[in-house]
């Protein structure tokens, strides 16, 4: 029994114990209010955008600082968003009831759609800039390491954060009554 509680779901990155604790928490936390959740989503979006914008900064020192702050903020917000969503996005199916499973599955469909749209935009932008470089409209190709690295990091951050961002935006405030 003790071993079951300590079971770690490697594919999900969570343990049974932490999911059970997160789901059964009945404290009236500010993290479970919709306004708070949506504010966290806005901050997470801004940190990802800051990382993307930093790619275009000429000053290397300022770029490094902004990149570092944006990444640190995104990582911190990832854990806070996870907690505010009660680990629903990460939980394996066996630990969720039918209602939470419905919510999680709807959430992933929406997240996948958003990510596919972003990937489409990114691929389109790279393709068009490649054409523009071939035609002499750009001085250098967009796929230079300095320019592409922040984009790649931002993309991975978006991938990690998106399920909890979508979930946090859509979950209603929780009533403890």
């Amino acid at each position: 029994m003790a071993n079951q509680e300590k079971k770690f779901y490697w594919a999900h990155g969570v343990s049974r114990e932490e999911v059970t604790q997160a789901l059964s928490d009945q404290k009236d936390s500010v993290l479970y209010r919709q306004n708070t959740r949506r504010s966290l989503v806005v901050f997470a979006s801004l940190s990802i955008m800051a990382l993307v914008i930093s790619a275009f900064l000429v000053d290397g020192k300022i770029q490094s600082y902004i990149e570092g702050i944006a990444i640190a903020l995104a990582i911190a917000l990832y854990f806070v968003l996870r907690k505010s969503c009660r680990l629903i996005a990460e939980a394996p199916a066996e630990l969720l009831d039918e209602r939470l499973l419905d919510i999680r599955n709807q959430n992933y469909v929406t997240s996948y759609g958003i990510l596919a749209f972003v990937v489409g935009l990114a691929v389109g932008a790279v393709w068009m800039s490649d054409i523009a470089f071939d035609r002499g409209m750009l001085d250098e190709p967009i796929l230079s390491r300095e320019l592409i690295t922040p984009f790649i990091i931002a993309f991975f951050m978006l991938g990690a954060l998106l399920p909890n961002m979508v979930l946090a935006w859509n979950l209603p405030s929780e009533s403890q009554s």
Partner: peptide, 10 residues
């Protein structure tokens, strides 16, 4: 019944 307490509320 094996569900989350909030599910009963909803």
């Amino acid at each position: 019944v094996g569900v989350h307490y909030q599910t009963i509320g909803y």
